[in-house]
Amino acid sequence: MWLIDSSIGRKFIMSISGIFLVLFLLFHSCMNIVVIISPSGYNAICGFLGANWYAVAGTSLLAAGFVIHILYALYLTYQNMRARGSEQYAVKKNQNGVEWTSQNMFVLGLIVFGFLALHLYNFWFRMQFAELTGLHTGMFDAADGASYVKALFSSWIYCVIYIVWLSALWLHLTHGVWSALQSLGLNNKIWLPRVKVVANIVSTIVILMFMSIPVYYLLGFGA
């Protein structure tokens, strides 16, 4: 199967799964920003995306996207280490114009993944999971997302943790988005610098929307 056996096929899956995750983040961040504008509106969205079949289907698809992206990331990284060989260069200097992020996508991905587990525990476990199983896993009603957000971010430590997490994700995306387009072949000499600008804009918008929430609570507006 060429999507597993060939390097460009593997990159194709990597970029498609990556773009899928970016599209999800765009949706997720637009949804989150509502909690600042109108907590009751936010709760309406939470109610809408509870234990319904479409929300569960969406979550499963999303989980599959993550699993594929991570499995391919592991496989690619393992192969690349093998291709590099057992002997390392004694002296190796970085070149001008090579982004640090592009050389550290796996590490950034791992950081994103680590915090993701915490994030799922903070919200998903107490909301959708609680609704699905009927268990009472948190202190508020499962659809009362706004209260969960407020409770979590009343602790400045959590605000800082989320800001650090989002920074790592931002770094992953500034390279990831243009790299995904390049991997799909949607690039040329004229578009190369433009695609990089587009990637920076997209990732910055997504991350700013997410980050505005912990910052909002950190500055005391949501109290």
């Binding site: 390097s7 593997r10 291709a83 090579v98 982004e99």
Partner: peptide
């Protein structure tokens, strides 16, 4: 590409170090 993969070269992650060097 099939030959390149068979010979054990790695997967490109678009770092751009090749172009720089």
């Amino acid at each position: 590409v099939a030959k390149m993969d068979e010979l054990g070269f790695g997967n490109c992650t678009n770092t751009g170090a090749c172009e720089a060097e």
